[in-house]
Amino acid sequence: MTFTFRETTQRSAAPVTVDHDKCIADKGCTVCVDVCPLDLLAIDPDTGKAYMKFDECWYCMPCAKDCPTGAVRVEIPYLLR
């Protein structure tokens, strides 16, 4: 018998979402990525827009409050809602 080690991922709906019409990450803005204490946001190379890469959100809000165009929305994570 040959048991093969596998890793699987657990799916989750990201509580932080970004309005692509307002986000100016493609113009070089990285404010939300910079300020997240847990380093959860990143710029998607395909769209040039910010997105939540890791769902470990503390719903603390710097990403939304500091965004110069109001493009970031923070919802309370589902488990706490």
Binding site: D34, C60, P62
Partner: peptide, 12 residues
């Protein structure tokens, strides 16, 4: 570990 602009207990 985070970013000084918004780190720590008084982040907000």
């Amino acid at each position: 570990k985070a970013h000084v602009k918004r780190s720590g207990a008084i982040s907000m």
